[in-house]
Write a protein that binds this DNA or RNA. Structure first.
Lengths: 230, 230
DNA sequence: GGCATGCTTCGGTGCAGGCCGAAACATGGC
DNA sequence: GCCATGTTTCGGCCTGCACCGAAGCATGCC
């Protein structure tokens, strides 16, 4: 296919108001369900479904199943860059309003909680973001890897990466329920979670999956990961 | 007007094959007449006229009269950047697409071409790499800077860095569409490109964005930048 | 002036595709 | 098993718009 045709096809996908609204809603990197995207676009679910199928087929979106939900997100940073460039030309406007999201009703749950054996919520996402930004882990859709720099960092935290020798699935991304972004799961997520409990950085809320960040935890997390949860 | 609608409108303009072909033809920064653009798009003059009016109204193109001709060109570097970003996504989009056939024109394009007002393709990337390796420029994801050593080097090439509005981002990296790496854009990229044409190191391939490296260019590029295109 | 060239406007045709209702399919809770 | 919820598929309607032929400006050359 010619370059022109490929470019026109991609641009045409963005050139529909409903699809543009959906893409815009995904610009913050989170993943939303088809129903939510239908809502932000002001169209019915079946119409949205058709749009999402086309966007995925063209490589603009990536989809992953989770239960009976299907979470859609931008397929790559290149897509986000393209959308930014288009917005720039269209006449720069402030970032879009974020769609209403349904998550854990409890604010503490939303802030930080455990997901099986690892940390989730804003805390979990913040840790994943920080480590990815620093090049300590590399996250992909279906897996991840700890970099040499990451090994050093984990060692300084008192985490020995090679627990069990199963390097496979040691670093696995998991889509966060409330934040709609990836956090660290697998052996790595579990090890970090365990270590945070050992260090007294977080403690469990009784009879809940929620966890609280202690005062020592605020300082420790800031120093270790450079993250700041307000 | 909402952000979504503005983005969709702009993208829809690019999303028509005929308009995409015309925009692509203008990617080298030159200005073409309506008739020429109708030719490259494979449509009649009256249809092209309608397209051009819409593109100008949306701020994608600028037009200037000259006698009975009307010359159209991209309205700003931002438009060129947007088109490059779309091509990036369109080029890598489809899931394992069939091996794309590469014609001679395509090969020449990959080797060296103009991107709005600067050099791109393998030549553009090679120049950026060489200057970065020698400490003449420092490139980051979102910006760049010319070092003192770079100033000296540019002077020896006959390029005065502060010509014109020095406020403009003089050194800006631009992600290469075919090489997927950064080359030099901004005022610096434009100055180097202009100088290469002046020195007869490269010349345009008629009716194409591709450029050819001359024999003098091979020698000159080797001596100035230490680069060797196969 | 007369004529040629380049471009735009007007009117009408035809097709692509966005939209929804209805129904089928998939998954989880009971 | 049954039902509720989320999502996709199917069929049909209808708008939007890309396209061209013909005619109407505009400019330059003679």
């Amino acid at each position: 296919m010619s370059t022109n045709a490929a470019m026109a096809e991609t641009a045409a996908l963005v050139g529909d108001p409903a699809r543009a609204a959906m893409l815009n809603a995904l610009m913050d990197g989170r993943a939303l369900t088809a129903g939510e995207l239908a809502g932000v676009a002001g169209i019915t679910a079946q119409t949205a479904s058709g749009h999402l199928a086309r966007l995925s087929a063209a490589g603009l979106l990536a989809m992953e199943r989770q239960g009976r939900h299907r979470y859609h997100r931008l397929a790559s940073p290149a897509v986000a860059r393209m959308l930014e460039a288009i917005m720039m030309v269209a006449g720069s406007a402030p970032p879009p309003a974020r769609p209403r999201r349904v998550g854990p009703a409890d604010a503490a749950m939303r802030n930080a909680r455990t997901c099986y054996d690892h940390l989730a919520g804003r805390l979990g996402v913040a840790i994943a973001d920080a480590m990815a930004a620093r090049g300590q882990v590399e996250l992909a859709t279906d897996g991840g890897a700890v970099t040499p720099a990451g090994q050093d960092f984990l060692g300084s935290l008192g985490i020995t990466p090679d627990a069990g020798g199963s390097r496979r699935a040691f670093c696995r991304p998991c889509l966060d329920w409330s934040e709609r972004r990836h956090h660290l799961a697998g052996g790595l997520g579990a090890a970090i979670c365990t270590r945070c409990f050992e260090l007294g950085w977080v403690k469990r809320v009784p009879a809940s999956r929620a966890v609280l960040v202690t005062r020592a935890g605020e300082a420790g997390l800031r120093q270790a990961f450079g993250i700041e949860l307000e």
